[in-house]
Amino acid sequence: MINILLIVFTMSLLFFAIGNRLMTYVKILALQGVLLFGIAFYGLIESNLATLIIILLETIIVKAIAIPLFLRYVIIKNNITREAEPYLPNFVSLIIVTLIIAATFMVSNVIHDIHNHKIYFVVALSALFSGLYFMSTRKKIITHVICYVLIENGVFILSLAVGKEMPMLVNLGVLFDVFVSVFLLGIFINKVGDVLQDTDVSQLSNLKD
């Protein structure tokens, strides 16, 4: 079952590559939150109850509901145009994401001691690298935040693969930090919108030597 969810997660990366609107991205993030909920549920069902509840709450409430709603609020409040405005055509993005997935698949085959968790690795690393790729090819700063959440999702999958034994405290800290960063970034976009009237990366390139 986990495999199916992970494959669907990877498919969501492909649809991210051809998405044209910011709302599509936000919806994909919400979908990924639900998928992570499923993955965490099946992956951690044997561990202790408290951890399970915290993780499930984190995925379903924060990742699937709160963050997408908040991003939606930011987009609407700042009148950000709905188009994502990539630097490269989506067609190229799609090919590159496919190549990233294929490459991570090949790489994880070279590594020998992850037999049990190979699919986690492929999915997590492809999410990480495609997130970095999307980040560098999208013009708006809100898409940078969205890509940051995408990368965080990848890291979440990686942490599921690696340590079911990560202490509670760490989980809480991670949750808190992600939560705060996203909200701070979001509030910050509001401020950027107030001062610069246009939330575009090209506005933010005056500081250089």
Partner: peptide, 16 residues
């Protein structure tokens, strides 16, 4: 690009 997504998805099937 939409049609090419299909190829990517079937590549996923292939990998799985």
């Amino acid at each position: 690009q939409f049609i090419l997504v299909l190829s990517s998805v079937s590549l996923l099937v292939f990998f799985s």
